[in-house]
Simulated assay, not measured.
Amino acid sequence: MEIKVLFLDLDGTTLTNDQVHVSERNMKAIQEAMDKGIQVVPCTGRVLDMFPPQLLNRKGIRYCITCHGARAFDRDTGRTLYENLITPADSLKICRIIEGNGIYAEIAAQNTIFLERAVDEKLDEMPVPAHHIWYIKDEHCQLAVDSPGEYLFSHGIGIEKVNIYGIPEALQESLYGQLTNTGCIKHTREEVKPDLEFSARTLDKEQAVAAVLKELGVSLKECMIIGDSSSDLDMIKKVGFGVAMGNAPDSIKAQAKAVAPRNDEDGVAAMIEAYLL
């Protein structure tokens, strides 16, 4: 069957190991796929504003699925096609647990990142991930507010996703328990760790994919997805042609119709060249 839509994960898939750049070969193959009339749709855990400029500035990449399916977005019209967010009231509840502890928490909402101002003013002391430095420190693209919770609640904004990094050991179990007990979140990894990631409890990436496909009039069987992690697995199994990266766990590779070379070996380009061009 002819492939009409290509869904691309970013980290561990389309991006190089620095998690910032797209290789020249991958970028060339993506452009050639678009020139052929194939819709290329980034489908990632990232917030839209944190996409690599190579992709954000590329004409032809119209639709994006962000924050593991929390939002599907039409960049040409600025229209949200689908969203599954933590409600403003629950967002306030979550932020109250995090705020005031000096914890580095990236709160994704409205396609960008919010930081607590007290944290933003001490970025040199914060565990900013290496691949976020360009965005947080160099470009300073985030929105710093005194209280993200109060800001989101007062403006009727729901959280798309939260990433917390470098939680002190003394706070890890308590923070994890308090956040879990709100009953409104879904952890990406169900365990107490220094780093946490979570979204709305009802998050369902397939619904975000369905919203994009409805807009395009395309079926799942006419799609290819390339990914490397457990968040990609359901779609790898359900689309017409699911591809796992060579750096993906064996359990994911076993469910794919093809296995690409690793992300640091231009695996995305290899699959586009082999199956789409």
Rank of each mutant, 00 (worst) to 15 (best):
D204K: 01
D195T: 05
G227H: 03
A208M: 04
I226M: 10
G166T: 11
I236Q: 04
A170Q: 11
M224V: 01
A211F: 08
E173A: 14
M235N: 07
N181G: 06
V243M: 14
I226P: 07
E169Q: 09
L203E: 02
L213F: 07
D266K: 07
R262E: 03
A208W: 01
V243A: 12
L171T: 02
G242C: 14
R201W: 01
P249L: 05
G242K: 09
V259D: 05
P261S: 04
D204W: 00
K237W: 00
A244F: 02
Q172T: 08
N181S: 12
L233Y: 00
V212G: 02
S174M: 09
Q255N: 09
E215K: 12
K253W: 03
T182C: 12
G166V: 10
G246F: 09
E191I: 03
G217V: 04
L220Q: 03
A248F: 09
V192L: 07
S219F: 06
D232A: 02
D264I: 04
E206A: 07
T180N: 12
V259C: 03
E191F: 13
A258R: 13
G227M: 05
L179G: 02
K193F: 09
K238M: 08
V209K: 00
G240H: 11
G177V: 00
K238H: 08
D266P: 11
I167T: 14
G227R: 09
A254Y: 04
A260H: 12
A200V: 03
S230A: 11
E206H: 02
I236T: 03
P261A: 01
V259H: 01
S230N: 12
L220W: 15
A208L: 05
I185N: 04
A244R: 08
V212I: 11
L220E: 08
L220Y: 15
E190F: 05
L216Q: 10
E173N: 04
D195S: 14
D232N: 07
T182H: 09
E173F: 00
S231D: 11
H187M: 14
E222V: 05
F198M: 06
D234W: 00
G166H: 10
I225K: 03
K186I: 00
L203Y: 02
K186N: 12
A248G: 12
M224T: 02
K238L: 12
A170L: 06
D228Y: 02
I185E: 06
S231H: 08
M235V: 06
G183N: 10
T188G: 05
N263M: 07
H187W: 14
Q255H: 14
G183V: 07
S199N: 10
S229G: 10
V192F: 06
D234V: 01
G240R: 08
K237C: 11
E215R: 11
P168G: 06
E191H: 12
L220M: 13
G227Y: 01
A258Y: 15
S219L: 06
S219T: 15
R201E: 09
K186P: 05
S199I: 01
I236D: 04
T202R: 08
A258P: 12
A254Q: 15
M245H: 11
E197P: 08
K186E: 11
I167H: 09
A211S: 15
L203G: 01
S199D: 02
I185R: 05
I185W: 05
T180E: 14
R189H: 12
